[in-house]
């Protein structure tokens, strides 16, 4: 069984924000909500790196673990989705998520939280596929059509790759071997040290 994952190749990301724009346009994401963001580290210094970040569709998702109304579910191919009809906008998932993926619309005064919104891996939600309800609440459902998330498919430098974990790790491994160095994935040195 496939397990859908994102991987951002920091060596290739040029911080063009095309992934952010593609996501917002495809899903008609409301003002104030960014399902995907580009994070820049060491901005303006030698060794500057940019990484495109959204929901990483964790295998053991902390957002789902802390949700008091259990509105999260994981599809058979590992995509973490949620039911906006159940969400109470408490914000626990935002505190639990290490990537800051859950977002809340800012359409009302005094910072009132609305229903949580996050990346769906372009897989819609629990409404009938391609229905108006699904489009309004969760955005388009590309995965059901056999397509991958638009952010990854639009990436000009192929820095952001998405799909079955086996396939994307294979693609990334070939790139690293071609470069003749060590993997430069975000956090690699923190996790494995300088020498690995």
């Amino acid at each position: 069984m496939a397990r859908m994952k994102f991987l951002c190749d920091a060596e290739r990301c040029i911080e063009c924000q095309a992934c952010v724009t593609a996501c917002k346009n495809e899903h008609e994401v409301p003002w104030g909500v960014n399902r995907r963001r580009v994070i820049v580290m060491n901005d303006g210094q030698p060794g500057e790196r940019a990484v495109s970040v959204a929901c990483m569709h964790c295998t053991d998702a902390p957002c789902a673990a802390v949700c008091p109304v259990d509105c999260f579910y994981t599809t058979a191919d590992g995509i973490v989705l949620h039911d906006k009809d159940l969400c109470i906008g408490c914000g626990y998932c935002f505190y639990a998520c290490p990537f800051g993926a859950p977002q809340y619309p800012e359409q009302t005064a005094f910072g009132v939280r609305g229903k949580m919104d996050k990346c769906t891996f372009c897989a819609g939600g629990p409404e009938p596929a391609h229905s108006q309800e699904e489009l309004t609440k969760y955005g388009t459902n590309r995965v059901e059509e056999g397509k991958l998330p638009l952010c990854a498919e639009m990436c000009a430098t192929k820095a952001l790759i998405a799909g079955d974990g086996d396939v994307i790790s294979d693609i990334y491994r070939k790139r690293v071997m071609q470069r003749g160095g060590r993997p430069q994935t975000w956090g690699w040195q923190s996790a494995y040290g300088e020498g690995v």
């Binding site: 069984m1 496939a2 259990d70 191919d77 039911d83 629990p126 596929a129 991958l148 079955d164």
Partner: peptide, 23 residues
Amino acid sequence: VYKGSGDDTASEEAAEARADDLR
């Protein structure tokens, strides 16, 4: 345990059917 409505596209059959296309 998930308390929301069911999602037909989340089932194993649906995932299996689209897996090759997505790969």
